[in-house]
């Protein structure tokens, strides 16, 4: 057992747990976005940044940082709130996240986080790049304008389904989630049509066809439910 402090509360954790795990067990809320229980942590979105007092105030992603004996973690502070808000604003400014016109309105983790962190406006100019929407798959669609590149779909597809259909194509702000060789989703030979990516997606980027906005509720928890019931092979 390892003992650390999170927001001045002494917390115990197993050595293989992350700061996020330890905080959760202690009932301390840390916002997350790219993290999804059941998938490997990648530390991509930085929303879960926490401050380590006894590391000179260093900022680390709670989802991808293992606990250590004696860590003095700040999980909630004005500084962190401001940083997390800024990250959200950058995400909103990067593509097109106009909730009123989104299929996921009301069921979107990005929208929920904006509300939670009190992000009432965006201080950066919106980029609004004109990105395509691919509706070639019979059951699902992907609207790149809503994608925040969290990679949850990519990991669900490779780590849980094992199909490896989705990948990151391009780089930086021009990155797009693409199927196989950049094929239309409906033509992707490796796609099994399982829909795990759609359930894992925190925004309206991946959606189910034939469902109205109000019904576009995702079930990201199925990823953890599946992986828990089907423990990965050792090694």
């Amino acid at each position: 057992m390892i003992t650390l402090r999170i927001d001045d509360i002494p917390v115990q954790a197993e050595p293989d747990q992350t700061i996020l795990d330890a905080a959760k067990a202690a009932g301390i809320r840390i916002p997350t976005l790219c993290h999804l229980p059941g998938l490997s942590p990648v530390g991509a979105c930085r929303l879960c940044l926490v401050e380590i007092r006894n590391w000179n105030g260093k900022l680390v992603p709670a989802c991808a940082t293992p606990v250590q004996e004696g860590l003095d973690v700040v999980a909630n502070s004005d500084r962190l709130r401001e940083l997390r808000r800024t990250i959200l604003e950058l995400l909103f400014a990067e593509r097109n996240h106009i909730c009123a016109f989104c299929v996921a309105n009301g069921h979107c983790e990005l929208q929920d986080l904006a509300a939670e962190l009190g992000m009432d406006h965006v201080r950066f100019p919106y980029r609004f790049p004109p990105l395509p929407l691919d509706a070639s798959h019979p059951k699902f669609g992907i609207d790149h304008n809503r994608c925040i590149l969290c990679g949850r779909c990519v990991r669900a597809c490779s780590e849980v389904e094992g199909a490896m259909t989705w990948g990151f194509a391009g780089r930086g702000i021009f990155t797009l989630i693409e199927a196989d060789l950049g094929d239309p989703w409906g033509d992707a030979k490796t796609c099994t049509g399982c829909g795990k990516c759609v359930q894992a997606c925190p925004t309206g980027a991946l959606f189910e066809k034939g469902r109205a906005t109000g019904e576009q509720e995702k079930r990201p928890a199925i990823v953890a439910a599946l992986t828990e019931r089907r423990p990965r092979a050792q090694g």
């Binding site: 990151f168 780089r171 693409e178 196989d180 060789l181 950049g182």
Partner: peptide
Amino acid sequence: PKAAQAVVAEALGVPPSQVTGVVSF
């Protein structure tokens, strides 16, 4: 070209999405 990427993927045993990922990166 795409046709060549498909052959590379098949021959090396790498998922096509990763070949395209590397080529476009």
